[in-house]
Design a protein around this nucleic acid. Structure first.
Lengths: 227, 227
DNA sequence: TCGCGCGACGAACGTCTGTTTGAACCCAGA
DNA sequence: TCTGGGTTCAAACAGACGTTCGTCGCGCGA
């Protein structure tokens, strides 16, 4: 329980969310267009001209508002990662409260799975953000990979909770299984869904995220309970 | 068993392996340097000049021997994917022979896990090839993504074997769980190993691939046995 | 009303990119 | 020895890229 204290629910930066009150329409147009294009085509495959054209703004806007193309990517990544980590930390904290500081494995995993799956719902406008995060994790700059080491402090809460839930397991086993679970999440890219849909002959429906959550929990919980 | 017939052990192209007999030192130097750099830095982050400098050959060599930078990437990808698929198919076939056409889940998963893990052994010179394949899967061109649809016929063998091993499961459940298992594999990138090593405070040793195989099998087998 | 500053704009800059060119080179076969 | 096809080489090409520049327009405070 000491590891699940609510002292710092958010992990990343104070989250200035630039300045949504001052109607900076251009800045947020750039932000949204860039996130969308990055998520769909990758960072290197999208030029500043592509972004500004999609956003309907001037070419120089990216450098004026964000400093550079790299800084723009980093800003989007920091924002979305912060939001995701906060949702996960909140769910983990709630699960901890419900179980006197010792939530069961399935609820810990649910705190890890549910937020990105909620975002991935076709009815959710954050749908593209999940794809952005997944892609940014593997294509990110060196600067971002360093920032991801900060993310480790976020994952540490989950690792501690899992060790508490399964004190009989060797700690290294818990870490490896957490690694496997994260792999399950990061594989949820559009292209992989399409491949799976094609492989299964149309049996797998991507849209039903609630059912997918249950499937992932069934699989991962059983995996964690092994041994 | 009908799905595990040995008729087409290899999935991809006839595998010309260009021409290793004619001492085309330049061509294979380009091939190896490109695979290495692509695996470590990504396709877009490596220029033709980087490749030829690393290989110690002339700049025009890439276009002369492979046609274009894209074709070079595709050639490496086709070769390595073919080799990996062949090893997997062979292991699956052998497991099928050992169990009268109905191998258990653990052996099917072993056929999926073992080849890339054997390659990933620090003592193996194919170590970099695994990283290349993983990276190419997510950063590949549209042409490569189409070629990956061919890879589906390779995965179909494993899907059929799993359905046979667990006939009580709904087929769509098998497909989803196969998807989860593939996610576990594709997450085995250098950067993720480093992150895990950092998160666990040095508890996880990347080098011991035999132990990692056991860990992955324990987790994935239990996940597949759920429900 | 004036002046100041923020933001948007078109245009340009320098660099790096993949690719192509045409000549030099090498070695086997006539 | 001469010839020719395959290979390597330095050099250049055209285009795309991220970034920067100087200017202009608008609205707010003095």
């Amino acid at each position: 329980m000491s590891d699940l204290t609510p002292d710092t629910p958010e992990i990343t930066a104070p989250e200035v969310v630039f300045d949504e009150e001052t109607h900076a329409a251009t800045k947020s147009a750039v932000f949204n267009a860039a996130e969308r294009l990055f998520a769909l085509q990758g960072f290197q495959n999208v030029s500043v001209r592509d972004i500004t054209a999609e956003a309907g703004v001037n070419l120089a806007s990216v450098n004026y508002h964000f400093g550079s193309k790299d800084a723009l990517l980093f800003a989007i990544f920091r924002r979305r990662t912060g939001e995701l980590n906060r949702e996960r930390a909140r769910m983990l904290h709630e699960a901890s409260d419900r179980h006197a500081g010792k939530p069961p494995v399935r609820e810990i995993l649910a705190a890890l799975f549910a937020p990105p799956l909620r975002w991935a719902d076709p009815a959710n406008d954050r749908r593209i953000s999940v794809q952005f995060i997944i892609r940014a994790r593997s294509e990110g700059t060196a600067e971002m990979r360093d920032a991801l080491q900060n993310d480790v402090s976020h994952l540490a809460r989950f690792a501690e909770a899992l060790k508490t839930a399964r004190p009989d397991l060797a700690p290294e086993t818990v870490y490896w299984r957490l690694h496997f679970v994260l792999g399950m999440i990061h594989n949820n890219r559009f292209a992989e869904f399409d491949r799976l849909h094609h492989l299964s002959g149309g049996l797998t429906r991507e849209g039903d995220v609630a059912a997918l959550l249950t499937r992932m929990l069934d699989f991962a919980e059983a995996g964690f309970m092994a041994g």
